[in-house]
Amino acid sequence: MMELPVIHHRGQLVDARLHLLDRQLLDDEDSPAGIVDDLVLSGVELDKDIPEGTEAPQLTSLLSGHVVATRMFGGGPPRSRLQGIPRSLVDSIHVVVKLKPTDMVFDAGWMERWLCDRVIKHIPGGRHAAE
């Protein structure tokens, strides 16, 4: 069997597709804040060749939003529909991506707010503390 080259590196080696995309985002209180739907890399432009000797691109932020429809039917949502979460907010990348405490409001989307305000809050017990 061919030996695979061992690349030594500092810190944690993360495979974007394996460890980041589709991972659950949890805020500092372990509440779901979304799913990692896309990544923003610095220094890479779409459809342009990268000249040799360029510095490696860096991950600047994670993107999260509503992507199910475009995944099924093709294409991608416009960038404005995805919320960017700067890399500095990422606390740890494990089986879930944990975020640091922040004042940033995670845009759970109009649907969550609308359903909460118009439906769930009006149901008896809708605002009660859970078991």
Binding site: A33, S64, A108, I120, I123, G125, G126, A130
Partner: peptide
């Protein structure tokens, strides 16, 4: 990736 669970307020 929605918030879920019986341990949250509805």
């Amino acid at each position: 990736g929605w918030p879920w669970g019986k341990f949250r307020r509805p």
